[in-house]
Amino acid sequence: MAIASVIGGAIYLTSAQGKSISNNTAIAQDTNTATLTSVWDKETEPAYSGTTEMTVYRSPSCGCCGGWIEHAKQHGFKVKDIKTEDMAALKQKYKLPTELASCHTTIIDGYVMEGHIPVDDIKRFLSEKPELAGLTVPGMPIGTPGMEARNIKQPFQVLSFNDRGEVEIFKEYQSY
């Protein structure tokens, strides 16, 4: 059970109720049968030879951006991880249209990479060096890299966008 201390006549439970070590072990054992390997682990752009240094801006309170950073590292990117409270100002600075926003914003090779984009799509985009502003996966679709949840896989699109706010589909994921 939780660790308790008595302050001012009341019991303060300092850890989660019922969150004992044995409970956690039980959950961990459950996961052995339902493994959480991600469909995004596989490398699809092995020949990529472009820039690997990226800067990721994220809110210190974001619970999912870290998962995407792990995904990027796994695929060979070196990540400069910057936590900032004012993501809105940052997105404005990079002229990201409101409708295209997600949680974290990545800058690589002068391009804006918004949200939970599969990083191999970023590699393909950078290899093409298009005259565009960048890529985005707007919102936070469940199932994207860093957003894997049980068996939920929301269809999503990777969109490219330019300085005039025009948008085109770069890649579509209906089922994955």
């Binding site: 303060y12 300092t14 459950d30 996961t31 959480l36 619970g63 999912c64 469940i142 860093g146």
Partner: peptide
Amino acid sequence: PQTVRSFELNHGMNPAVGM
């Protein structure tokens, strides 16, 4: 109160279920 409990709300990666 006889008891005080704390609850923390957030989202994130959980080892059992993912996001």
